[in-house]
């Protein structure tokens, strides 16, 4: 090996490149990210203390926007719907696991089946929303004839304030289940076959096998499934916008949608109020972000 370069002094770059190189590589990424993601978060916090229509001079109002939120019925409706989304969306995880178990076989053509079960995930939420809106549509949709087979009376899922949110969540679950399914299929692929056989010899089967042998090995897949599902639930916007525009009577709004409506729609450009709603949504999300980072930090230290 040559050691000739070791002691010969060359330019500044050559002497300092180990310290300078990471910053050189990081600079463009950090600049972009700081400008478009990090700084705007703080700006939104700031804007939430102003009354501002997006054009004129912002008027400082202190905590007025937050105080108004407390008396805003639409805010509570949105918050309650967010909780529904969060809770029901988590059903995607067991449902995805169930389908993954169903498809984890090696019969002919199973690869194609797996792909076809998965591909709703790559369709845009806008189109999924449209497809389900037509599916539910009382005059042309298949939904009513379908539930009619089981003796249910026809209903207008998206036109009824008490069913509309569930209808949209069901549409949202469709791609999310596909996502969880693919995570679990990958996880099942990596399950240690020797452990499974050993457990079989010990008489473990069915649910007991699943619970005590398989699920512990699927932990990493479950973790990712929880993270992406929670984030997905709190990000729900596209479907609500496409399927109902938050209606009927605002009953299918969530915070993400209500914020958009307040800041950028015909109801007026109330940027400060919108920012306050966004801050609340951000704080809810922050719990999960902190949890995720904490897990990662533990793992990093373990390495």
């Amino acid at each position: 090996m040559s050691v000739s370069s070791e002691s010969t002094p060359r330019g500044w770059w050559h002497r300092n490149q180990m310290r300078a190189a990471p910053w050189l590589f990081l600079a463009p990424g950090i600049a972009f990210f700081a400008l478009y993601v990090i700084y705007p978060i703080f700006q939104s916090f700031n804007i939430s203390f102003y009354r501002w229509d997006g054009l004129g001079e912002p008027v400082p109002v202190g905590f007025e926007n937050y105080r108004q939120l407390l008396d805003d019925r639409a805010f509570y409706v949105s918050l309650r719907n967010n909780v529904r989304w969060l809770v029901l969306y988590l059903l995607a995880i067991p449902a995805g696991l169930f389908i993954a178990l169903f498809l984890n076989q090696q019969v002919r053509g199973i690869r194609l089946y797996k792909s076809l079960f998965f591909f709703p995930f790559v369709i845009s939420q806008v189109v999924v929303g449209l497809v389900f809106a037509w599916f539910y549509n009382p005059s042309i949709g298949l939904f009513n004839p379908l539930i009619g087979l089981f003796g249910f009376a026809p209903m207008n899922v998206l036109g009824n304030p008490s069913t509309v949110t569930y209808g949209i969540i069901a549409a949202g679950l469709w791609p999310q289940i596909a996502y969880c399914m693919i995570l679990y299929l990958t996880g099942l692929n990596a399950v240690d076959p020797e452990q499974v056989e050993a457990a079989r010899l010990d008489g473990a089967r069915g649910w007991r096998m699943l619970w005590y042998v398989i699920l512990p090995q699927l932990r990493p897949a479950t973790f990712i499934a929880v993270v992406v599902t929670v984030i997905g639930a709190l990000r729900s916007f596209d479907m609500i916008s496409v399927m109902t525009n938050g209606g009927p009577f605002g009953s299918s709004r969530v915070l993400a949608y209500y914020m958009f409506e307040v800041s950028l729609s015909e109801y007026g450009f109330r940027m400060g109020y919108g920012a306050a709603i966004a801050v609340i949504l951000f704080l809810i999300m922050l719990v999960y972000i902190a949890f995720f980072l904490w897990r990662m930090w533990r793992e990093e230290r373990g390495v």
Partner: peptide, 22 residues
């Protein structure tokens, strides 16, 4: 690294008004 990861999970709405303004 954590800054990038955390930013990736942020709800879009907290960025909306400033990014539109920018």
């Amino acid at each position: 690294f954590f800054m990038f990861v955390a930013g990736n999970f942020v709800p879009f709405q907290i960025l909306m008004v400033p990014v539109r303004d920018l």
